[in-house]
């Protein structure tokens, strides 16, 4: 039953016009954009894949739309806007920078900045001012150590 059904589906789809006819109209530059755009657009019905990768009927239709609009001379942004209008932001694998994505786009670089500041602090601070430990600290350390029988002070050994 299920086989018959998938066969039927196959027949229905193969009878439909496919995207191939449309890519024939594209020049090389457009063809390259066609591949790039397809890879950046998420297929709505299948699991996590782009419309370039998916064999789902809808993905095929959308590839056809991308090809047709490229041939009509539309820009990448116009094509994306066309699809976002119909299927939502979800279709964009490359979310544009906006109020809802600034954390996403800036986050790693802010973190990198913080990390580099930290590195510089470690290199400068420790290198220039190897402050001697205040004696109070040693006493506290000794007290802490006494309360934890398991923890002899290893720091001396490590520095050797």
């Amino acid at each position: 039953m299920r086989h018959a059904l998938s066969l039927l589906l196959l027949l229905v789809w193969s009878a439909l016009p496919t995207a191939f006819a449309q890519t024939a109209d594209l020049n090389d530059a457009q063809l390259e954009r066609y591949h790039e755009l397809n890879a950046e657009l998420r297929c709505v019905i299948c699991q996590n894949r782009s419309i370039a990768e998916s064999d789902a009927p809808l993905a095929k239709d959308l590839r056809g739309i991308v090809a047709r609009q490229l041939a009509e001379g539309r820009s990448d942004d116009e094509i994306k806007a066309y699809l976002v209008e119909r299927y939502g932001e979800w279709v964009l694998y490359d979310p544009p920078f906006s109020w809802s994505t600034w954390v996403l786009w800036l986050g790693p670089f802010v973190l990198l900045f913080v990390g580099l500041v930290f590195v510089i602090a470690v290199m400068r601070g420790r290198y220039r001012a190897p402050e001697p430990r205040p004696p109070l600290d040693r006493e506290r350390l000794a007290r802490v150590l006494k309360s934890h029988e398991a923890g002899p002070d290893d720091t001396d050994k490590d520095r050797s």
């Binding site: 016009p17 709505v44 019905i45 809808l58 239709d61 119909r86 299927y87 939502g88």
Partner: peptide
């Protein structure tokens, strides 16, 4: 028959 209105309506399946 070509699913064009479907696309305009954001029909996935």
């Amino acid at each position: 028959p070509a699913g064009e209105v479907g696309i305009d309506w954001g029909v996935a399946a």
